[in-house]
């Protein structure tokens, strides 16, 4: 187990290094003038270009630039934002809590709804309940997030203003719990609806397979109550693919929930990324990209370890 984790972490480091290198090449390869021009925009005066070349050290050789880029990265130094002139690390740390809370809260909702829905559907396949769920799932998957989000914002502000729910930037729950909930509930639900739909499908399929297994019949033949058969013998074994998907989703979403954050004006990583892409704020883009891949790498390691707990047949090696 320890060996496995060490190996996976080393592997993860290699992935991150590849990502960093790719990003580096993407932005910094080529003659210094071209790079500076790309950063400064087509209409920037020559002085600005010279200044950029100077501050970023674009006149050094590629290898030198690459070495200092990696060195800074290792020290957690992601550079200074062109636009706001604040360290990228600070910007990311400011945006991270909103995204973390958004994904965490939504994850609880969508896992609860998705697994429950999937189990209910699988236990009575082709029943009215199953069919209703299927329709809802289809609706959830096909409904664009921004449409649902805007609908929710409209309802909250115009029809149910007394709820106090409103779009707006993230508020720390430590400072103002009520404000935090009023801001977060809508994004939670919005993100969870889309995700839950996928998880209902996934859980249903996996459960149907498991419930057809011989050991389910054995459990029934023992006289175990149906509830116990469904959850202890069925769901427990059916969870493996669900957990895989969960790991991937969490990793991806932590990198930035672009649409949901935008609709509700939540100042998270997704928003930060959109903004920096729009203004060509290179250091921030690089920082966010590397952070996003780090999340995915870590989530995958966690999933693999979780496997060995879920299924004793899995030997980590």
């Amino acid at each position: 187990m320890t060996r496995f984790i060490i190996r996976r972490v080393l592997f993860g480091v290699i992935v991150l290094w590849l990502v960093a290198t790719t990003v580096f090449l993407l932005f910094f390869a080529g003659p210094a003038d071209n790079v500076a021009r790309r950063l400064a925009g087509p209409r920037a005066p020559m002085e600005v270009i010279e200044q950029i070349k100077d501050t970023l050290g674009l006149n050094r050789s590629m290898w030198e630039q690459y070495a200092s880029f990696l060195g800074n990265l290792l020290h957690g130094d992601l550079g200074i934002s062109f636009i706001s002139q604040t360290p990228v690390t600070t910007l990311i740390m400011q945006s991270l809590p909103g995204t973390l809370w958004l994904v965490a809260g939504a994850a609880v909702l969508w896992m609860a709804a998705g697994i429950t829905g999937g189990v209910i559907s699988a236990v009575r396949p082709r029943s009215v309940l199953d069919r209703t769920t299927t329709v809802l799932v289809l609706a959830g998957i096909s409904l664009p997030t921004f449409v649902l989000g805007m609908l929710m914002v409209y309802l909250a502000l115009s029809v149910f203003p007394w709820t106090g729910l409103q779009p707006g930037p993230y508020i720390s729950p430590l400072l103002d719990l009520k404000g935090f909930l009023q801001v977060m509930i809508m994004p939670w639900v919005c993100l969870a609806v889309v995700q839950a739909a996928v998880y209902v499908r996934l859980t249903r399929g996996s459960m149907l397979d498991t419930l057809g297994e011989d050991y389910i019949r054995t459990a029934r033949a023992k006289g175990a109550p149906e509830r116990r058969v469904t959850y202890r013998h069925g769901l427990r074994a059916a969870l493996t693919p669900v957990v895989t998907q969960f790991g991937v989703d969490i990793g991806t979403l932590l990198g930035g929930v672009v649409v949901t954050e935008s609709v509700f004006g939540l100042q998270g990583l997704g928003q930060l990324m959109i903004r920096s892409v729009r203004y060509g704020d290179l250091p921030v883009i690089i920082g966010a990209a590397i952070l996003a891949s780090a999340f995915i790498v870590v989530a995958n390691i966690v999933v693999d370890v979780a496997y060995s707990f879920l299924d004793p047949r899995v030997r980590l090696a």
């Binding site: 297994e213 011989d214 050991y215 019949r217 054995t218 459990a219 033949a221 202890r232 013998h233 427990r236 074994a237 879920l310 299924d311 004793p312 047949r313």
Partner: peptide, 13 residues
Amino acid sequence: VFQDPLAALTPVH
């Protein structure tokens, strides 16, 4: 008692 003992016991318990 069922036929295929490979499949008749829950793998995770």
